[in-house]
Measured scan of single mutants.
Amino acid sequence: MEVRTIKVFTTVDNINLHTQVVDMSMTYGQQFGPTYLDGADVTKIKPHNSHEGKTFYVLPNDDTLRVEAFEYYHTTDPSFLGRYMSALNHTKKWKYPQVNGLTSIKWADNNCYLATALLTLQQIELKFNPPALQDAYYRARAGEAANFCALILAYCNKTVGELGDVRETMSYLFQHANLDSCKRVLNVVCKTCGQQQTTLKGVEAVMYMGTLSYEQFKKGVQIPCTCGKQATKYLVQQESPFVMMSAPPAQYELKHGTFTCASEYTGNYQCGHYKHITSKETLYCIDGALLTKSSEYKGPITDVFYKENSYTTTIK
């Protein structure tokens, strides 16, 4: 009895394709271990004539594949690729409408935090270190965002349907971005203890939790000093293409032309909904596939993004 075979390709990165001759009487799992086709788990399936010449994702289970996976995804987590594939199996079914010149995501599976993050990423200057993220990001900007969303979920250790947080998501993504040249110098002034300067680099240099107003941050924000008295913390120097200011959701007025974009969060910790506000020729609110415009805006804002380049204080 002759062994019926077909020729397929296996890959971990969709760049390096490895030619395989597979036995049609055995499952993919018996031949390769966990195997995925377009995100779908085909591990328990036997090869079919229609699979001839198709590319299958496999887990990096030998040295060659491990090197290829690390170079593309910059992670050695053995569960990463499987999590990416199972997320992709959902995100490829989502709709990605162009809204006001940006790629958004039609609401499904509690994905409003991903839509808000995706919209924000198209408006701030950011370059990702893992080629996987950078490639998928370019495709997302062009309207094909399924891979990018699935990668975000995998890097953030999230599953489809789980509630997510924009600030946490951005923080994970910033860790995989090139923020080497970003720098922030802060000064804390206390009447009792004097003053202390701190220099922050990388992710810490672009994120701040405690106030939404970048102007206020430049002037000074009140913080408790270690001595128990009130101290003032203010920005001395900022070198970065953008800054992200966050605070627990509270009524906040966004003035046209003073910011790049913002995240609105309605609801409580267990259950809520994100919308995205962007400042173009007027203010726009993007909620999944829905767009509304207004000249002014007041609502429960939790993150505001500002364009920056270089700032030095005039406070002496």
Rank of each mutant, 00 (worst) to 15 (best):
E2T: 12
R4W: 13
R4V: 13
I6S: 08
T10M: 08
D13C: 06
I15K: 13
L17S: 09
H18S: 05
V21Y: 14
V22I: 10
S25N: 13
T27H: 08
T27R: 10
Y28N: 10
P34A: 13
P34Q: 15
T35L: 13
T35I: 13
Y36R: 06
L37S: 13
K44N: 12
K44R: 14
I45G: 12
K46M: 15
E52L: 10
K54D: 13
F56H: 11
V58C: 10
V58N: 06
P60L: 04
P60D: 14
D63Q: 11
L65W: 06
L65T: 14
R66Q: 13
R66V: 12
R66E: 15
V67N: 15
E68G: 11
F70D: 06
Y72C: 08
Y73W: 01
H74A: 03
T75S: 14
T75A: 11
T76W: 10
T76D: 14
D77M: 08
S79K: 13
F80W: 04
F80P: 06
L81V: 14
Y84C: 05
S86Q: 13
T91I: 12
W94L: 04
Y96C: 10
Y96I: 04
Q98G: 11
N100L: 15
S104Y: 10
S104G: 13
I105C: 02
I105L: 09
W107C: 05
A108E: 06
N111F: 12
N111H: 07
C112Q: 11
C112M: 07
C112W: 02
Y113I: 04
L114R: 08
A117G: 00
L119Y: 03
L119H: 13
L121A: 04
Q122L: 01
Q122E: 06
Q122W: 01
L126V: 14
N129K: 15
L133N: 02
Q134V: 09
Q134C: 10
A140G: 06
R141C: 14
A142C: 14
E144C: 09
E144Y: 12
N147I: 08
C149V: 14
I152M: 12
K158P: 02
G161Q: 00
E162C: 02
M170Y: 03
M170R: 02
L173H: 06
Q175D: 02
A177W: 00
N178L: 05
N178D: 13
N178R: 07
D180P: 06
S181T: 13
K183Q: 00
K183W: 00
N187T: 10
V188K: 12
K191T: 13
K191D: 15
T192L: 09
T192E: 15
G194Y: 00
Q195D: 15
Q195F: 10
Q196Y: 14
Q196E: 09
Q196L: 09
T199P: 01
K201E: 08
K201C: 10
V203R: 10
V203H: 10
E204M: 07
V206R: 02
V206N: 08
V206K: 00
Y208G: 01
L212Y: 08
K218Q: 02
K218D: 05
K219H: 06
K219V: 09
G220A: 03
Q222G: 09
I223P: 00
I223D: 06
C225N: 04
C225I: 04
C225T: 02
C227D: 01
K229W: 01
Q230C: 03
A231G: 07
T232L: 11
Y234D: 10
Y234Q: 08
Q238G: 03
E239G: 01
F242D: 04
F242H: 00
V243W: 04
V243C: 01
M245N: 01
S246P: 07
A247R: 10
P249D: 00
Y252G: 04
L254E: 07
K255R: 10
T260Q: 15
S263K: 03
S263H: 15
Y265T: 00
G267R: 02
N268C: 08
N268L: 00
N268F: 04
C271V: 10
G272W: 08
H273D: 01
H273F: 02
Y274Q: 05
Y274S: 04
K275T: 04
T278I: 09
T278P: 01
K280C: 12
K280F: 10
E281G: 02
T282C: 08
T282P: 02
T282Y: 10
L283I: 15
I286V: 01
D287L: 00
G288H: 07
L290P: 01
L291G: 11
K293G: 06
S294V: 15
S294Q: 14
E296V: 13
K298Q: 13
K298S: 12
P300K: 06
P300H: 05
I301C: 00
I301F: 00
F305Q: 06
K307R: 12
K307P: 15
N309K: 08
T312N: 09
T312K: 09
T312H: 13
T313I: 09
T314C: 00
